[in-house]
Amino acid sequence: MHGSGIPIWFFIGVLLLIYGLMIFGYGVFEALIGPLAPVELNYLHTPIWWGAILAVIGLLYVVKFRPGRAGK
């Protein structure tokens, strides 16, 4: 958004960070005790790396677009 206030990118960052941490956490849990759902390519541990990617992107957006940072 142009102008003052919380940018949309901050909201997106928060959502991606929360989702990324949840999915990454489940991926680690699954890697330790075995898969809970019979999906294909389980051995690739998709939740771990995809969750990590989402969390890192989310964190970058949260930091870069955090409220009050605009104009600094």
Partner: peptide, 12 residues
């Protein structure tokens, strides 16, 4: 989606 996405990812 159901074929590849497990808990959490399917929710996404």
């Amino acid at each position: 989606m159901v074929r590849y996405l497990g808990p959490g990812l399917l929710g996404l």
